[in-house]
Amino acid sequence: MNKVVIGLLGATALFFATEGAHAAPQQITDTVITVQNVKNGHYKIDPYHTQVLFSVSHFGFTNYSGNFSDISGVLALNPKNIEKSKLDIQIPIASIQTTSSKLTQELKDPDWFDAKQYPTAHFVSSHIVKTGEKTADVTGNLTLHGITKPVTLHIAYIGAGVNPLNKAYTVGFQITGKINRGEFGIKTYLPKVGDEVDLTIAAAFEKAS
């Protein structure tokens, strides 16, 4: 076999190997962006990469989890003076999902969230306190199931930079908190199904202005 044929076969093999492999993830940024260096301004939630997860004790056997999607909201971010920032998040109740289709439907019904009468959960911040270099506590009003109560969420900065896929400048946070569902009038199976609900929000925001 001559050198030309060998070269062509080698190039063909390399082409198919490259096409079949997944490209390595692109780095968002070459430098570490500290909280203070994140761009100031107004952001909108990226609904495709934002999740609201909840977990509750299920008859004391397991901590059962589910999630909400299609989240919307805005963030007025002031990185150098985080106390002046504002957060507004809206969660469509009908987007709820669990690993059981039967339970998912039940949770939308009047005995639970009553998604038709109360289609949206809404959190609006009223007070922000810096708790560390990358953390803050955000207190605000949560309206759920037609009832509004004060709630404090704990926010941790994850990272920021230009998304290599859509080129949007993005900042991300991990948000955690707890609520008592009974305080919001969701009392089915209390106390056997837990009252305290753990919340975890993976929140991505894209710069709007």
Rank of each mutant, 00 (worst) to 15 (best):
Gln26Pro: 03
Gln26Glu: 12
Thr29Ala: 14
Thr31Asp: 01
Thr31Val: 12
Val32Cys: 12
Thr34Ile: 04
Gln36Val: 15
Val38Thr: 13
Asn40Met: 15
Gly41Asn: 01
Gly41Tyr: 06
Ile45Asn: 03
Gln51Tyr: 12
Gln51Cys: 11
Leu53Ile: 09
Phe54Arg: 01
Val56Tyr: 02
Ser57Asp: 09
His58Gly: 01
Phe59Ala: 14
Phe59Val: 13
Phe59Asp: 15
Thr62Arg: 08
Tyr64Trp: 13
Ser65Lys: 07
Asn67Phe: 12
Ser69Asp: 13
Ser69Phe: 11
Ile71Thr: 00
Gly73Leu: 08
Val74His: 08
Val74Ser: 10
Val74Ala: 10
Ala76Glu: 15
Pro79Cys: 06
Pro79Lys: 02
Lys80Cys: 06
Asn81Trp: 08
Ile82Asn: 05
Leu87Gly: 02
Ile89Asn: 00
Ile89Phe: 00
Gln90Arg: 13
Ile91Arg: 05
Pro92Gly: 12
Ile93Gly: 03
Ala94Trp: 10
Gln97Leu: 13
Thr98Trp: 03
Ser101Lys: 11
Leu103Ser: 05
Thr104Arg: 09
Leu107Tyr: 12
Lys108Ala: 08
Lys108His: 11
Lys108Asn: 14
Asp109Leu: 12
Trp112Arg: 07
Phe113Pro: 06
Ala115Tyr: 10
Tyr118Pro: 07
Thr120Lys: 10
Thr120Val: 14
Ala121Val: 07
Val124Leu: 12
Val124Phe: 07
Ser125Thr: 13
Ile128Asn: 00
Lys130Ile: 10
Lys134His: 14
Ala136Ile: 08
Thr139Ile: 06
Gly140His: 00
Leu142Arg: 02
Leu144Ser: 12
Gly146His: 05
Lys149Asn: 15
Pro150Val: 10
Pro150Met: 08
Pro150Tyr: 09
Pro150Asn: 04
Thr152Pro: 09
Thr152His: 01
His154Ile: 05
Tyr157Thr: 01
Ala160Asn: 07
Ala160Thr: 01
Val162Phe: 05
Asn163Tyr: 00
Pro164Arg: 02
Pro164Tyr: 01
